[in-house]
Nucleic acid binder design. Structure first.
Lengths: 227, 227
DNA sequence: ATCGCAAATATGTATATACATAATGGGCGA
DNA sequence: TCGCCCATTATGTATATACATATTTGCGAT
């Protein structure tokens, strides 16, 4: 009883009961601590957590109020494809379709922050779930940004090799819908122009851009999250 | 110097430098605290934060190790549409296209957890950004789950009314790509079958399912997040 | 050798205290 | 009256301490 999660639940309940309406100031930490008979640090933990979830807005001196902005935050778990496929109870396999050295298109060079003429490695991998096309991965890899020699990527996916080799790069991820190109349709086994769920991800270390991936999922793919 | 964010940065740096490789155990909190000359609580805060981000895995007694699973977590901010449009520097407007009472299709009744024959309110709203179609919102609303009378929704969007009225319901959200239906194509001004980015969201209070929304975004929409 | 129990240990949480920091808002002076 | 400065105040963080809890590990009995 009266751990910080209980305090959090109690406060959330009062918000949901419209005890405190959106925009309203709630009591300060010291008062809440006294009311619930816990230390201020415990209330702080609870309120901080609710604020991280977007329910509260906190500002020093100004106090804590129920969020008016209503920006919900959802946490997306983004696993490597193998795990995603296996989590669905299917067997993962992949085929390396292409591996060439080439200069990226200018737009991409700009986005990755590499010189326009830089030689990058272009890799194309088809991921399979129980033998059926799951997603087509089109990747540009910057060999300068990874330590040591590159494997040939027929035994291990680029993704899994990267998370072992450049473990914790930062980056950004985008989600969009696009019609299947001729090539994507052929490889994924759908009609040209079919609506595909696409994720584009760029990752970089402090020093340099490491990789850019476009992942076109076979039709029917859904990404889900709890609020 | 040596606030918890500095400790976090120092530890993240050591992970990125492969000082501790994925899967390896890192020193315990007490040792790290001694090493950095801070209290254990400070190290705990830093490690807890890194674990929330998916970089570390922690288990009592077993210690803290660099995550091997590599499930990256991205936080998505999900604003109400008005804010999303305005954040892009455009003017938001909307038109209520339909408002009827009807029984939801059986699949949806199941998903929302309402009786198969229940009368729900079906609302269709077109959202505009600078006068151009931005997204088509198809919503089922459970009148039993909201307190008081319903407005007519011509002056305020359902979404904004809901976040004022049932502020902090929980729920789940899904993202997918689908071809535009005839109706969606007509309303959004795109070709039938065009690839649309669709979000489906269900929200519920403790007591009952409140609403289910399908939001079909006009072609070109992207959702982005940082890793 | 195997099972089960107990000791050891790392993280998780709670507490009181202290000080830091960011806004607010009132008072004072021009 | 206007504008600046400082006291006030709520949150943010750091610390030492204590105890809770989940696992592991090893010891001892069968």
């Amino acid at each position: 009883m009266s751990g910080w999660e209980d305090i959090r639940a109690a406060i959330r309940a009062r918000i949901e009961a419209r005890d405190w309406v959106p925009g309203a100031l709630i009591p300060n930490e010291a008062d809440l601590a006294a009311e619930y008979g816990v230390a201020r640090a415990t209330v702080n933990r609870a309120l901080r957590d609710l604020a991280e979830g977007g329910l509260l807005e906190r500002r020093r001196r100004a106090g804590t109020r129920v969020a008016l902005a209503q920006v919900r935050r959802a946490v997306l778990a983004i696993p490597v494809i193998r795990r995603e496929v296996e989590a669905a109870g299917k067997a993962h396999a992949f085929r390396l379709l292409e591996r060439v050295e080439a200069a990226p298109p200018p737009v991409l060079a700009l986005r990755m922050g590499v010189a326009p003429g830089a030689r990058l490695l272009r890799l194309e991998t088809l991921h399979l779930a129980d033998g059926r096309a799951f997603a087509l991965e089109a990747r540009w890899l910057n060999p300068m940004a990874v330590p040591g020699p590159l494997p040939d990527f027929t035994q291990v996916t680029v993704n899994e090799w990267l998370v072992e080799t450049v473990p914790y790069a930062t980056g950004e991820i985008e989600f969009l819908a696009e019609p299947a190109s001729t090539r994507e349709a052929a490889v994924l086994g759908c009609k040209e122009g079919a609506a595909l769920f696409v994720t584009e991800r760029g990752t970089r270390t402090e020093a340099a851009s490491v990789t850019f991936v476009r992942l076109a999922h076979a039709p029917g793919y859904r990404m889900r999250s709890v609020l």
